[in-house]
Design a protein around this nucleic acid. Structure first.
Lengths: 140, 140
DNA sequence: TTATAAATTTGTAATGAGTTCAAATATGAA
DNA sequence: TTCATATTTGAACTCATTACAAATTTATAA
């Protein structure tokens, strides 16, 4: 089941043009965009789209577990089209967020020390591989 | 070395009344407060303190590795007086952030898949033990 | 001490992500 | 068609955080 329309219907969300378009963007580029980035992209295809619709749709996706909000940068929310649980790496230099597939013993836990777990978030901050290589070149 | 003045001086930060007061608050109550909570608390002791000084001081602490900002709630930054690395649990109901001491194989890593790691963040979301117990009582 | 420079604090204004809300539009059933 | 319901829109608003320049404090040196 990778049909986006089906995914929405299965979640009880009516697949409007706007919603489908937003989900399609999240699915095509897995670059963890901000709401503003999504709005700008969709606007080129649906010029009448409003910022509020983007926020409304994203909220709907989140409430239904289709999309995961990432609170990593501290300045704005990034959105992740959730497939399988995974970790993230945030580059403080270029701002890019990478997916990290690593083995973590806590990704499946539903209870820790008496607290009921609904979501698990693991991420790292630093300088990404790409930016490190650029630095090296600049020095030589 | 648990003397707060020493900690600041060791980090190259001049221990002004304002800065000491903020750090003392973070040290006394480990409740991961927001900047607003800190400001309100300090204001009762230093009525002339300004919001900007709170933000300035926190930024200084963060830049020098004394305090860790937590981007967990999505609406505002929480501040943690960093001692040892640990995980967090955020209760979606009461908003409280708990420290979790759990064994994680990635808390000491300095490099993952070519990326240089500076910070590690692991946190969980859900309903805390306290709120769960309240729910149970309400049902019986 | 006094003068001068540097660091710190303050308060106001600005920024910008995200929300609110009522009006407009589209959809779907009878 | 008619009516009710769901969705979208756009403008106004909220609120955490930042920018910045003036005021104050602290440090330094003559």
């Amino acid at each position: 089941m990778k049909n986006l329309k089906d995914i929405l219907e299965y979640a009880g969300i009516k697949p409007t043009i706007e919603r489908l378009s937003i989900l399609r963007y999240l699915d095509s580029k897995h670059d963890h965009p901000t709401a503003a980035m999504i709005f700008n992209e969709i606007e080129t295809k649906i010029p009448t789209i409003s910022k509020t619709t983007v926020y409304n749709s994203l909220k709907l996706f989140i409430d239904n577990g289709i999309v995961t909000p990432l609170y990593i940068t501290g300045s704005e929310v990034r959105y992740d089209f959730a497939t399988k649980p995974h970790h993230h790496f945030f580059c403080e230099k270029c701002g890019k967020i990478y997916d990290l597939i690593i083995d973590c013993p806590y990704m499946k836990k539903t209870k820790i020390q008496g607290h009921q777990i609904k979501q698990r978030h693991g991420y790292f901050r630093g300088i990404c591989k790409n930016c490190l290589e650029k630095e090296e070149k600049a020095q030589s």
